[in-house]
Design a protein around this nucleic acid. Structure first.
Lengths: 338, 338
DNA sequence: CTGAAAGCGCTTACAG
DNA sequence: CTGAAAGCGCTTACAG
């Protein structure tokens, strides 16, 4: 910057002014300074700037898994909203590694970002404690950490489960299977709750099929359990807790010679692009990742700009049903059956 | 930091020393300072540090598209290698937006990162010019920009095409179809070149099928063109330039009542997880994204640590064939047919 | 409208 | 082994 000032024949302060308050500078000198900047290829040192100005229009987003398209959607939504708010979004991928997640949190803390967005998979207590202690705003995404000192943005997984079961019931099915793992993961627990509520309200039957693997590899185990049921208790519809698992179920049913949805209807949950290529397009429940990311940025910006007035809140974003062939067949789904 | 010094009853310089050169400080005072740091929850301001120290162990990675699993793999490989080198990797997603890409480059430049990794989709000339001008090291990934002033890491797409065609030829096929778009994109151009070379060397026939959409949506157009060929010229094997396109072809062939690979063998290229769910597991050519990311970090670190001695180089990472059912059927592929 | 000066939070020779 | 002081590149009241 000193070089720019020298070349333009002005003081440091003036260069700073054309950078920060161009309207306060006479046009002729502003142009002269601008020329010097261009000629020298000057790029202001953002670290020095934010050190001196005490502000830093940057948001850090720590993500648990970029391989999961939900998180990519979250990043995209956050990115767009951040840009709209005049902030820059930086991503750090913790790749399912809790220790690395804490490293990233500390990194952003050290970089004095305006705030941090955190999408964890397990309870992020220690890391968030450290960050909150220094007062940096944190928004937790897609995980209900039950913290009163942060905003939270959740997808309504209970509703996702309810939507799924309701859809199958509306199609006329009377005996549903819910294929899932343990309730260890919040989304599994909540989706199960939603399925149970819909089933109870409608007075239909529910068979819960436990599997150890929520990816497509869980398909064979699920189908084996279905086949082992007495004929009278065999479900007419399957809800898999994830799309990948739903895909595995469809594949395995195909191997067993059963038609989907002719012999049995199937749906997943997640709207996962990795499950889009199946032989039968899979009905699913879409989780609005982009809205989650955007809402989180909005909450963060609110907290940053009005630290005093800000009230922490939990935003719950609704999922939506995506009907495709695996439940409804090739024809459009009947709106109201049975 | 002043608070820490006060609480520990030492000077600022001493606190700095326990942070940067703990061995130069007497144990008892080091412990005292450490206690103060813990008690106060002090996190050093990394901006001030790198301003004063003139170094910044951070690498910025600008990615064109996080929705593409190749780039996620690249990010993962770069992340791991960066951690191994004691650096932190920061991600910025330009989401197929050239203007946003330049914004991210300038951001990293302003943040005075040690170096930048750039995975673009089109020629990144202007952005890289700006960054190189100030001397910041840049490594270009997955795109041959033909710049002598940067290192480059490429996947050998020509070889990928050659591997694909060679595989089909080895399986005994004598009339191959190559389904792809224009040569506008480097990977398409190079893969085509490899396919042509293998076909010419083997003296078999090649039919080139142009499609406008390289995703699964291109499938119907491709199959329509195949069906329109005179019976005597109909290919016995299809190589799609991407896995998604290969998936689309398999789906459309299924709709047309043709068996894969019984009636016609199909393969893709990319090893894209989004194409893994098809009714017939797709043979593909795997692009080693993690190695690309890791190699790029290694080149960058070399340039950063020995700016004088460093010679720019282009590393070309070899792809590898992944044989699955869509070309080889359920039995293992014969090693040498025809 | 422009400049001189203090200060942001740290590091690093240099003394002691 | 520890401290005082200069400096990293910028911003921002405050004068003029």
């Amino acid at each position: 910057m000193a070089d720019v000032a020298a070349r333009a024949g002005v003081s440091l302060g003036t260069v700073s002014h054309v950078l920060n308050h161009p309207e306060r500078v006479k046009e002729s000198t502003r142009l002269r300074v601008q020329d010097a900047i261009d000629a020298l290829g000057f790029v202001r040192n953002a670290q020095a700037r934010s050190l001196a100005a005490g502000e830093n229009r940057t948001i850090g987003l720590v993500l648990v898994d970029l391989g999961n398209t939900l998180f990519v959607d979250i990043a995209r939504g956050a990115q767009q909203e951040a840009t709209a708010c005049g902030m820059t979004l930086l991503l750090a991928n913790s790749d399912n590694d809790d220790a690395l997640q804490d490293v990233h949190l500390d990194f952003f803390e050290g970089a004095r970002v305006s705030g941090i967005l955190l999408a964890p998979m397990t309870d992020p207590r220690t890391g968030v404690d450290r960050v909150r202690r220094r007062g940096t705003p944190v928004v937790v995404l897609n995980y209900d950490a039950g913290r009163p000192d942060c905003c939270t943005v959740l997808v309504d997984n209970e509703r996702a489960g309810h939507l799924a079961a309701r859809h199958m019931i509306d199609l006329g099915h009377r005996r549903l299977a819910f294929v899932a793992g343990r309730d260890h993961l919040q989304p599994v627990r909540d989706r199960r709750r939603g399925v149970r509520r819909a089933v109870a309200d409608a007075g239909v039957e529910l068979v819960e099929i436990p599997v150890g693997d929520l990816s497509a590899r869980g398909g064979p185990a699920a189908v084996a359990q279905l086949a082992a049921l007495p004929a009278g208790r065999r479900p007419d519809a399957v809800i898999a807790v994830t799309d990948l698992l739903g895909l595995g179920v469809v594949q395995e049913l195909g191997r067993a010679g059963l038609a989907v949805p002719g012999d049995i209807a199937v749906m997943g949950c997640d709207y996962d692009k990795r499950a889009w290529g199946g032989s039968v397009p899979l009905t699913s429940v879409r989780m609005p990742g982009e809205e989650v990311g955007a809402a989180a940025v909005r909450l963060l910006v609110d907290e940053v700009s009005a630290p005093g007035l800000h009230r922490h809140e939990t935003v719950v974003v609704p999922p939506s049903l995506v009907v495709r062939e695996s439940s409804a067949g090739r024809a459009p789904a009947p709106t109201d059956v049975g």
